[in-house]
């Protein structure tokens, strides 16, 4: 399977949910130190602990940007519990391409970032 499929290239050139949100519930930025990729994600979470809105500001490769774009579409309406249950397998399935070991970090950056954001929220609420 081709790494740069039409879907991947399309989401890279025109990412869904691009931009910052006004008054987000959480904002988190993550860097991939290996390649310098940066990703900022804004989340709006409703009272039922579901993702209401998502804004992504990607600055990276086609794989990480497409992964952020596709994931942002997938997550709207999802509960935080459902997001926590997502795995590497789900991301690969969502991207629909074969990821070689060197690029796994790129593909996983968006989910890792969101999970970190949710963990931060949880810790904050416990305090």
């Amino acid at each position: 399977m081709d790494l740069f499929s039409e879907t991947i290239l399309d989401h890279y050139k025109h990412p869904s949910n691009k931009g910052s949100l006004k008054n987000p519930t959480i904002t988190i930025s993550e860097v991939n130190p290996l390649c310098g990729d940066k990703l900022k994600i804004d989340l709006k979470i409703d009272s039922k602990n579901r993702i209401k809105e998502i804004g992504i500001t990607p600055q990276g490769c086609a794989i990480s940007t497409a992964s952020a774009s596709l994931l942002s579409e997938k997550l709207i309406g999802k509960s935080l519990k459902e997001i926590e249950a997502l795995t590497e397998k789900d991301i690969f399935k969502m991207l629909g391409i074969e990821i070689n070991p060197g690029r796994i970090k790129c593909a996983m950056l968006p989910l890792v970032t969101i999970k970190k954001a949710l963990l931060m929220k949880e810790l904050k609420e416990k305090k």
């Binding site: 740069f4 390649c35 310098g36 990729d37 990276g60 490769c61 086609a62």
Partner: peptide
């Protein structure tokens, strides 16, 4: 992005280095 370029080069068995080159 450099990582994407290196992936395409790799398809042709061309090895180039990409990233911050340990000099961020």
């Amino acid at each position: 992005h450099p990582h994407d370029l290196a992936t395409i080069f790799n398809e042709d068995n061309v090895c180039i280095r990409t990233g911050q080159h340990c000099a961020a």
